[in-house]
Design a protein around this nucleic acid. Structure first.
Lengths: 173, 173
RNA sequence: AGACACCUAAUGUC
DNA sequence: GACATTAGGTGTCT
């Protein structure tokens, strides 16, 4: 299965956090079906790795817009994947409590992600640090933001973008 | 209150189970009043965490012998603690049924533990994974057995044994 | 409803 | 080698 769907958008997201908790960064590589790619990123002075992973997904989907076509979103966070894949629905049913009755963490972010969810988004796992180009590039941007290092965010034609040619090594659940 | 009684034996027991149910291990650190310490451990290919916790206590008390002096037995299992502390007596009275009438589980093990019980044994709770040395060492041995990893079981003088000097951080019910 | 224990998985770091 | 961020579950009793 290809890294991107020719009829929809392809997205790679990642989060980073020096120290965890500590200063964090998030990143998204967004390839639109019209043939343009742009990279997004951001910083938070005090956060957690998981919050950065969630924000990366929120920002990517927000940038694409709710009325966009199909989206193939790759992340290495089983936390985000599980939430999007059904946990959020269960948490809402239980009043934002986990299975053990303790309140879910990061509810504020899940309530921002929830209205962005839809069947047109296909959520896919990509293993971190396994050589996948899109994930590696997103990691690079997120880490740069988390450390206050400069990064140049690409915004241009897909034909000239070097991080979307290969497939992820695996695509487990 | 000290981790050991100078006039009796001190024991730390623990159980582990990869997967739960799955392959399990049990362990006991037995410090005899004569000044020797020996470590015990064992494996079961398919079991539960609670069965391993019970077996650890059975094996420790069996090794000490029924005619030994006072025993201070530390465990992190409220299940074992409750059973030894009176549940077994109630179950026997009710024909090995719980309060709701459903048969008690692990009856085979409780019937092995029952004849080892006596007033000379003081059962004490030690919280798991809270830094207590004896509990941590028992955990290490039990996990090693459960995963088939090699462990060297100590058998020697107490003066040279490094896992019995400090007190448990708490000793609630 | 409560309690203790045993895990499973991914990521982020040091 | 260690720890933190987060979720899912089973084993068992009161």
């Amino acid at each position: 299965m290809a890294t991107h769907s020719p009829l929809g958008a392809t997205v790679f997201t990642d989060g980073a956090c020096s120290g965890n908790p500590g200063p964090g960064g998030w990143a998204a590589v967004v390839a639109r079906p019209e043939g343009r790619v742009h990279e997004l990123g951001g910083f938070a002075p005090q956060t957690t790795n998981n919050r950065m992973e969630i924000i990366a997904a929120i920002e990517a989907l927000t940038a694409l817009g709710t009325d966009a076509g199909p989206v193939l979103l790759w992340t290495d966070s089983k936390y985000v994947l599980g939430a999007a894949g059904g946990w959020i629905a269960g948490w809402k049913r239980r009043g934002w409590r986990k299975a053990d009755g303790i309140p879910v963490l990061n509810q504020d972010l899940w309530e921002r992600l929830d209205p962005l969810l839809s069947a047109r988004i296909v959520w896919r796992y990509v293993p971190g640090h396994a050589g996948n180009l899109g994930n590696t590039r997103a990691d690079e941007i997120a880490v740069a933001f988390s450390k206050g290092r400069p990064v140049t965010l690409y915004d241009g034609p897909r034909a000239a973008y070097p991080y979307l040619e290969r497939e992820p090594p695996t695509s487990g659940a």
